[in-house]
Write a protein that binds this DNA or RNA. Structure first.
Length: 891
DNA sequence: GAATTTCCTG
DNA sequence: CAGGAAATTC
């Protein structure tokens, strides 16, 4: 910390001011993320169920087969995202399905007619992003099953003019909602498309706006009008302003100068920099400015509003869609009925079901939309219904499957017809086609297409499901039940092969279709199911390992034992309290009986909280290794690992001495923190009691452990250095008392050098970790300190204070109380007057800087820091004493 | 490249 | 307060 030198500091500061790229990056990414989300949302809306995140395997519109699945999928996603879009999205699946079907049909039937791309493909657009969006959509569509099926002519981009005029060859979408009436709904669809398009555009614009917001942009720019002109202006302005800081160092902010009035309320947005005579280079480091926050807030708000609006629109759309759907279904049913009547002559029964279906039509609700006719129909057709199940919530899956089976059994009883559901379906489809006299030869083609589509869809669905399951986090409750069943379902649906010997009693149809990688699926599912099991297994492994690892010998040394054993049992992770107690007992008194502790090795090492993945991988978490290495490194004699038997080298006697011995080479921070906690109770005392640390003499076994240790932290050297202090009580970690001491020291020095810290924390074995931790403490102190200063300075300004002189910091000042509360909570230390002075100076510095509008400069605080760091005063020698706390506090 | 410092996030 | 990342300095 060579910086007490003001010159150095100055130069450094000078150089330092640059736009904080980091921040920028962060902000940008954040925005981007949001934007992306929005885009996804919009896509979802248009496509209905998309994939999760980027990888979307599930394609929309695969025939009706996935109707349910899609919905559930969407729901899952929504839930995950905690997005408020639920209702809004609901409608889309339906729309998507329909449009998709239309699309497919058109493609097949001389796709040239196109026009209608389906709601999802509304590409026409305006902004580039839109175009992009459209592109991506279309590409996705292509990827999706539809692609598999029909390489039909790419749909023309400009859709809105749905030329759907001619009744789309009513394909028979067996599994799907009735397509026949499509022609009727053309208008509605168009209208919906437009609406949707509009909504989409709005969203995109919003996104663009958000992205173009530069951090430094003044709040005013953030207003989120839909007005595109404005938008353009903003974006251009933003780009300018965002770049400006770097471009014109001294003249910074001119571009974003703002009305002074906002000065008080929104500190960040200050007009041109007044009196910034210093030749600061622009701050390259991006800092988070108040202004940014401001604009962001606005952004968020506006976005929410937009969402609300979108929601409303979507709801309307949903209603429309529902109506349409109802119409379609009715039409379809009519046709279907007529067909079936004819079929009945041929001996195909199943009227009863139809009746039921019709009844349901009346009740179309949101729910019904998803399962609506589709599911019912599936049931009629028998096994096919499982397709829908595939995407259902796993938890419900089994139940539903059983219910379906029962139903099916009944149905089968009724109709002796063995026909496979699938075949039947196809047949129906063909029949429908023929009936309509639609594309004559197209019927078979359609059937084929549908088959393929189904296959594709199924496979994709399966992938999606697998993915979903494989993600560990989802494991929660929901997934457990479904593992076995879920996987199979999809495959069954995909099967065109009619008869699948039911592997499971309950879910006969589940037989995996090899074609679709059913086998793979099953495997993956198993794996997926395994997560839980694996997880446990891994944990167990770890635990066992942990047990093994924890060398009982170590326990004899209080320090070690405390750490190792005390540490977190799985249950106490967070609270090291128990440990503390232990340690306290051991560490506190020389008489420690800790030696007894060793035997029962704690089940887990505190640090053993490897993520499941890690565990499964078989990696031992870094922390995991610590247990041995640390102690071993510094103090060979302790090496349990090593050749010495655990106990052999250490006679009981030594234990006491060693226990506090500085074993710690370096511990991971976690360890440190743990220790800190542990030490907290006994902290102060420990130092007194333990003096001679075990001789560092024996450097026996460095081999293995050493290397390990080294790999983890290369602090051995530091350790060696530390030993000098070993004469005194040396602690391996920083205790709460150390923290307290540091806080008190902060009253004297805000910028202690590391050397100074070493001097004043002689009872601590310094290593890199410790040093950095101490430094970090002070850094944090400063952070808090300056935050308070700024806060109060602004407060004063807001309260109308005009002169810095008006502000004083006394012991009764709020500012002081806040600070004292932070650094001297117990208020058992008398804060030196000097600190009050410094605080006052700091406050005034902030005040002046803010009043001068310097806070517009990202690095405006640097100057203040420079000033403050010169105000450090000597820390009383008493702080060098290990007992300083007692002495200080009890005086 | 290590050491520091600040900023940001949790 | 800890962690992480970026910026800066030496």
């Amino acid at each position: 910390m060579p910086d007490h030198d003001s010159t150095t500091l100055l130069t450094r500061q000078t150089k330092r001011r640059r736009v904080d790229i980091g921040v920028k990056r962060t902000v940008g990414s954040a925005i981007f993320t949001r934007a992306r989300e929005t885009l996804l949302d919009s896509m979802n809306q248009s496509h209905g169920p998309d994939q999760e995140g980027d990888c979307s395997l599930v394609s929309h519109g695969h025939g009706g087969t996935n109707g349910d699945g899609e919905k559930s999928n969407v729901l899952r996603k929504l839930l995950k995202r905690a997005n408020s879009y639920e209702d809004a999205i609901m409608p889309f699946p339906g729309a998507t399905i329909i449009s998709q079907l239309l699309k497919n049909n058109m493609g097949k039937n001389g796709g040239s007619d196109s026009g209608f791309q389906g709601s999802g493909a509304l590409s026409s657009g305006g902004s580039e992003i839109q175009a992009e969006d459209a592109c991506s959509n279309s590409s996705r569509d292509r990827d999706s099953p539809s692609d598999c099926l029909s390489p039909g002519p790419p749909l023309p981009p400009p859709p809105s003019s749905s030329s759907f005029g001619r009744p789309p060859p009513p394909s028979n979408l067996n599994s799907h909602a009735p397509s026949q009436p499509l022609s009727l709904s053309t208008f509605d669809l168009d209208r919906l498309s437009d609406e949707h398009l509009r909504a989409k555009r709005a969203r995109v614009e919003n996104i663009i706006r958000g992205m173009s917001h530069s951090p430094l942009v003044r709040p005013g720019a953030g207003d989120h009008n839909q007005d595109s002109n404005r938008d353009n202006e903003n974006s251009s302005n933003n780009s300018n302003s965002s770049n400006d800081p770097r471009v014109d160092g001294n003249s910074h902010n001119h571009s974003r100068s703002e009305c002074p009035s906002s000065l008080l309320s929104s500190p960040g947005s200050r007009g041109g920099v007044v009196g910034v005579g210093e030749v600061y280079r622009e701050n390259k480091r991006k800092q988070r400015l108040p202004q940014q926050q401001h604009s962001f807030t606005q952004l968020v708000c506006s976005r929410q509003e937009q969402r609300q609006e979108e929601r409303r629109q979507l709801k309307l759309q949903l209603e429309d869609m529902q109506k349409q759907l109802r119409q379609l279904q009715e039409k379809f049913y009519q046709i279907y009925d007529s067909e079936t009547e004819e079929d009945e002559e041929n001996g195909e029964g199943g009227d009863a079901d139809r009746g039921g279906d019709r009844e349901e039509d009346g009740n179309l609700s949101e729910d019904s939309i998803r399962s609506d006719g589709l599911e019912e129909r599936h049931r009629d057709r028998g096994r096919h219904s499982h397709d829908d199940l595939s995407e259902l919530d796993p938890g419900l899956f089994l139940d539903r499957a059983r219910a379906l089976l029962r139903e099916q059994a009944l149905m089968d009883g009724e109709m002796e017809d063995d026909t496979d559901g699938r075949e039947e379906e196809e047949r129906n489809g063909e029949r429908v086609m023929k009936r309509r006299g639609g594309a004559g030869g197209g019927g078979r083609q359609l059937a084929e297409t549908l088959k393929q589509e189904l296959n594709c869809a199924v496979s994709q669905v399966v992938d999606t499901v697998v993915k979903g399951f494989s993600s560990p986090k989802q494991a929660a409750g929901h997934h457990h039940g479904c593992h076995s069943s879920t996987p199979a379902a999809p495959s069954s649906s995909s099967n065109s092969s009619s008869s699948c010997p039911p592997p499971f009693g309950p879910l006969p149809s589940l037989t995996p279709d090899s074609r679709f990688g059913g086998g793979a699926l099953a495997l993956s599912l198993n794996g997926d199911g395994s997560p839980t099991p694996n997880y446990h297994a891994s944990n167990q492994r770890l635990h066992c390992f942990g047990d093994v690892i924890v060398p009982s010998p170590l326990d004899s040394f209080s320090g070690l034992s405390g750490r190792l054993s005390g540490v977190p049992t799985p249950n106490d992770q967070t609270e090291a309290l128990p440990l503390v107690v232990r340690k306290t007992g051991g560490g506190g008194g020389p008489e420690n009986t800790n030696s007894s502790l060793p035997p029962p090795p704690p089940p887990h090492h505190p640090s053993l909280h490897p993520s499941p993945l890690t565990a499964s991988l078989g990696f031992s978490p870094p922390s995991f290794r610590h247990p041995f290495p640390l102690p071993l490194m510094g103090y060979p004699f302790q090496s349990p690992l090593g050749s010495h038997g655990a106990g052999a080298g250490y006679p009981p006697g030594p234990k006491d001495h060693h226990r506090s011995s500085p074993d710690s080479m370096d511990m991971t921070r976690e360890t440190i923190s743990l220790r800190t906690k542990m030490a907290s109770l006994g902290g102060g005392h420990l130092s007194h009691h333990h003096h001679r640390q075990s001789s560092p003499s024996q450097h026996g076994p460095e081999g293995l452990s050493l290397s390990l240790i080294k790999s983890e932290c290369g602090d051995l050297q530091d350790m060696a250095d530390i030993s000098p202090y070993s004469g005194n009580t040396i602690q391996e970690g920083l205790s709460p008392n150390h923290l307290k001491k540091a806080k008190l020291m902060f009253f004297y020095t805000r910028y202690p050098s590391s050397n100074m810290l070493k001097m004043y924390f002689a009872d601590v074995k310094f290593n890199r970790c410790i040093t950095s931790q101490l430094i970090k403490w002070f850094s944090n102190f400063r952070e808090f300190y300056y935050i308070q200063m700024e806060k109060f300075a602004r407060q004063a300004i807001n309260e109308g204070v005009t002169g810095a002189e008006e502000m004083t910091v006394g012991r009764d000042a709020e500012l002081f109380r806040a600070l004292n509360m932070h650094y001297n909570k117990a208020n058992d230390f008398e804060v030196p007057d000097r600190f009050l002075e410094v605080a006052q100076v700091t406050l005034r510095e902030f005040f002046n800087a803010i009043v001068a509008g310097k806070d517009a400069d990202p690095s405006w605080k640097k100057a203040i820091y420079k000033v403050i760091c010169k105000l450090d005063s000597e820390v009383p020698d008493i702080f060098k004493s290990p007992n300083c706390l007692q002495e200080l506090l009890h005086d």
